[in-house]
Design a binder for these strands. Structure first.
Length: 406
DNA sequence: TCTGGGGTCCTAGGACCC
DNA sequence: TCTGGGGTCCTAGGACCC
């Protein structure tokens, strides 16, 4: 053991860092919210359905007839759409009013996040029972580090480690379906970046393996926007440089990327295009901030609608405080977010002397922030955020001196 | 046809301290 | 008094993701 440890450290110093072979999976539930709704409304299977708009009320649409997009009026956006609806050109993030033009007969269901969270817990628990190294990436996707399981092959298992990884991934798909009656797509590759891309290559119910050697054939032909971290802005700027595919990105001079996108982001793009990513699967992390925000049905005038704004503002503070208390956090940084009718967004924040989880203290601080923003146009959104979180139960970092003084 | 709500991370300038 | 550099905290905005 000492000899091996020395040897390993020596080689790490002298050679490239020795990264052991990794088998990382990305699991993405297929059209998650819509698929959960189809369990409730099986008669809608095979038809275009979109989820979006206002939250389900206590009674829900049950009893009444289902609403179609045609009847919708408001500012909601699509959260998820069934594959049949996507075939009509609608997609998540699209305004419901616009979607109604494309698919007027699609059924519109309000989102029921409590139900989705239940199913989320069910599928994640099922996965953890098979492969415990799970990183949460939101309600409908996870990363799974399969490396230890692949390496600890039981007797009689396939010889090729990638074949064993495939068998594991197939078993995970099975247990997810048994637990939820829902399908998922999985990509297995040497890292998170590639797995995220791979899980999307064969949806729904896909199982895609991409080895390092497969990157040129499978990844390079894709548009750069398929890379997690290249969004609408960076994608458009790359397009103006004539860079459209991952192949283009991989073969452009990295100095050019650094010139246009900065040292850090440019270098990252270059690595990403070559399928390089050393990030670990992180099984636990503390939240950094907790927030609540609300877009109004109609834009509100800062003077004429002052009374309504005040009520909404206070409500947001009460809800954030409730979230903090329920989750056991307090925060020192209080932030205000405001969006004008022209969609321009401003934020203001301030730092308190001590963390709080109290609605009145949050309201006071956020109110002070509000005084620093110009109120010269109508407002469409108000938000309140609490950051710099700590657990009030746990002792804050203290020096021995202050402890002695107490 | 205008664009939800909940997050994370990065950048950049200024204050302040050593 | 001037100059310089490094480190940390604070604030504002923006890109990106699910």
């Amino acid at each position: 053991m000492p000899a091996g440890g020395l040897l390993l450290r020596y080689s790490a110093l002298v050679h490239e860092p020795l990264m052991p072979m990794r088998f990382i999976a990305h699991l993405d539930m297929d059209a998650f919210y819509a698929s959960v709704e189809l369990l409730r409304y099986p008669e809608l299977r095979g038809t275009p359905v979109v989820i979006g708009g206002r939250r389900r009320t206590a009674n829900g649409p049950a009893g009444g007839s289902l609403k179609t997009l045609r009847d919708y009026a408001g500012r909601g956006v699509i959260t998820t759409a069934t594959y049949e609806a996507r075939a009509l050109g609608v997609h998540s993030g699209m305004g419901l009013m616009k979607a109604a033009q494309l698919a007027p007969d699609a059924v519109l269901l309000p989102a029921d996040f409590d139900e989705y969270r239940n199913y989320s817990r069910m599928f994640k628990d099922a996965v953890r029972a098979v492969a415990p190294e799970v990183e949460d990436r939101g309600i409908d996707e996870i990363y799974i580090d399969l490396s230890a399981l692949v390496m600890a092959a039981p007797a009689g298992a396939a010889l090729d480690p990638w074949e064993r990884a495939r068998e594991l991934a197939a078993r995970i798909q099975d247990v997810v379906f048994e637990a939820t009656q829902l399908t998922c797509s999985i990509g297995v590759t040497p890292n998170k970046l590639l797995s995220k891309i791979a899980s999307d290559l064969d949806k729904p119910s896909g199982l895609t393996i991409v080895r390092e050697a497969d990157v040129p054939a499978r990844i390079w032909p894709l548009p750069v926007r398929k890379i997690n971290g290249i969004g609408p802005k960076a994608g458009a700027r790359l397009a103006t440089l004539g860079i459209h595919t991952v192949y283009d990105l991989a073969h452009v001079d990295p100095a050019l990327l650094v010139e246009h996108f900065g040292r850090s982001y440019g270098a990252w793009m270059h690595d990403a295009a070559h399928g390089r990513d050393a990030r670990d699967v992180v099984t636990y992390s503390e939240p950094k901030s907790i927030s609540r925000e609300s877009t109004f049905d109609d834009d509100l005038h800062p003077v004429r609608d002052r009374a309504r704004l005040t009520v909404i503002f206070t409500e947001l503070c009460v809800r954030v405080a409730g979230d903090l208390q329920r989750k056991g956090y307090a925060g020192r940084k209080i932030g205000l977010k405001l969006r004008y009718d022209n969609f321009k967004t401003v934020t203001r924040d301030c730092t308190l002397d001590a963390p709080t989880q109290d609605a009145q203290a949050i309201r006071r601080a956020a109110g002070a922030c509000l005084k620093r923003v110009p109120l010269d146009r109508r407002i469409r959104l108000l938000g309140v955020r609490v950051g710099a979180l700590s657990r009030p139960g746990a002792a804050p970092p203290q020096s021995a001196l202050t402890l002695a003084e107490v």
